[in-house]
């Protein structure tokens, strides 16, 4: 089962072409990692999957992106799309409100009003993000008082609160210490049971530890894409080999 199918996706920032003819099939309930040197287009691609690129002026996309077989281009309802395809950012970005309101924001946005229902959603999301025990006594306190690692798990809980199908994560651990990173990696692995996960990472150990598929990007092109253990043990392309053995990048 494929969650996303990308067919000949090109993307331009003004005159600059950042993605060149990307063809790709992202399987459901698996973890897909994007790796590649800085500036190769990983963030650009992941942001096209929930159309966050729409916020960037002068950004133009061609080709086709299918989610569960349906195109997300053109006049798709982007708010509904982003509800289905959640996102966790590189830098934890909790809202300056209480822990509870952070998690309740998404459901409230999509029309959940009852206090009881919100309370349940908040607890479930926080449990799923493995942070419930750490925050259950401070739900009414500001989320900004949490540590960086806790904030990132809070942001994961916030993304889970609207029950998405897909979770996009752009370098979610690059701002965190090793212990918080390990916690999040563990969490991501448990989440793949229910979610399709796409993760951008600069850390190749991380990609091998958690992902099922890996795509290697270079200068806006998808050089190689396949099963993670294959790609790291027997890369087909010379450029992939050079990159994963640390000869450039």
């Amino acid at each position: 089962m494929n969650k996303f199918i990308l067919e000949g996706v090109n993307l331009w920032y003004g005159d600059f072409q950042a993605l060149k003819g990307i063809d790709m099939e992202i399987p459901a309930n698996k973890i897909t990692a994007f790796i590649g040197p800085s500036g190769c287009g990983k963030s650009t691609l992941i942001k096209s999957l929930n159309r966050m690129n729409d916020l960037i002026e002068g950004c133009k996309v061609s080709g086709n992106i299918l989610l569960d077989g349906e195109s997300i281009n053109g006049d798709t309802d982007v708010n509904a799309l982003r509800k289905r395809v959640g996102m966790v950012f590189q830098k934890p970005n909790p809202f300056p409100m209480s822990v509870f309101d952070n998690i309740a924001y998404g459901p409230r946005t999509h029309g959940v009003k009852s206090k009881l229902a919100l309370g349940e959603i908040v607890e479930r999301s926080l449990r799923d993000a493995a942070i419930w025990d750490e925050v259950k006594d401070r739900l009414k306190k500001s989320a900004l008082g949490l540590s960086g690692g806790q904030q990132q798990r809070l942001c994961i809980a916030r993304a889970l609160s609207v029950q998405p199908d897909v979770l996009l994560m752009d370098e979610p651990t690059s701002a965190l210490d090793p212990i918080s990173t390990a916690k999040i990696e563990e969490l991501v692995i448990t989440l793949k049971k229910h979610y399709t996960i796409v993760i951008v990472t600069h850390n190749m150990q991380q990609a091998t530890r958690i992902s099922n598929r890996t795509g290697f990007f270079l200068l806006g092109e998808l050089v190689e894409f396949g099963k993670t253990n294959k790609l790291f043990s027997l890369p087909k392309d010379k450029r992939t080999e050079d990159y994963i053995t640390g000869r450039f990048g």
Binding site: N79, R82, F89, P96, T109, A159
Partner: peptide
């Protein structure tokens, strides 16, 4: 990032 976080949850 605060604005983007909200939009990424499907907020208008």
């Amino acid at each position: 990032e605060i604005y983007e976080g909200a939009v990424a949850l499907g907020a208008s």
